[in-house]
């Protein structure tokens, strides 16, 4: 990697959200049906909201997160991994707050993508009582065509 310029130093950058995020019952129902499932009748939301709620509720848009890494979203960021640990099932009509930060941005050479940066960030969803509902760590590949 010595021949490549270092990636931006973004480790530790806050992704705390400014506003709460609430899973609306009507949207949850549409989402479930779009995947071929019926919404639960017990007030729980589809678990994929772990990803949606944290992405929408964090303090940056996806484009803004890419921009913080000096990357243009139009250059095609790719999801490569996601890990989620649920403390409680997610519920509709419940306001959640997102806390989080960038863990690392690491520059690598890839046979498939050429030069790329691996972006890893962690987000936590907290309910109104301050209880953690889940934590997730997402990893994206940011292809650096200009360095290939």
């Amino acid at each position: 990697m010595e021949d490549l310029p270092p990636p931006p130093d973004v480790a530790g950058l806050s992704l705390d959200g400014a506003e709460t995020y609430t899973i609306e019952p009507e949207e949850n129902a549409r989402l479930c049906r779009s995947t071929g499932a019926e919404p639960a009748s017990d007030g729980t939301a589809h678990p994929i909201y772990y990803y949606i709620a944290t992405q929408v509720g964090m303090g940056k848009t996806v484009a803004g997160l890419c921009a913080a890494c000096d990357f243009d979203i139009d250059d095609g960021p790719m999801m490569v991994g996601s890990q989620a640990a649920f403390t409680h099932p997610l519920r509709i009509d419940t306001p959640y707050r997102v806390n989080g930060s960038i863990i690392s941005l690491t520059r690598k050479r890839s046979r498939k993508l050429g030069v790329m940066d691996l972006l890893e960030y962690r987000l936590v969803l907290v309910d109104a009582n301050g209880e953690e509902a889940l934590a997730c760590t997402n990893t994206w590949a940011l292809p650096r065509k200009e360095l290939a």
């Binding site: 678990p47 772990y50 490569v80 991994g81 996601s82 890990q83 989620a84 640990a85 649920f86 099932p89």
Partner: peptide, 10 residues
Amino acid sequence: GTITGLSTRF
């Protein structure tokens, strides 16, 4: 059941 953990590679 209740899903408590997911680890996914895309």
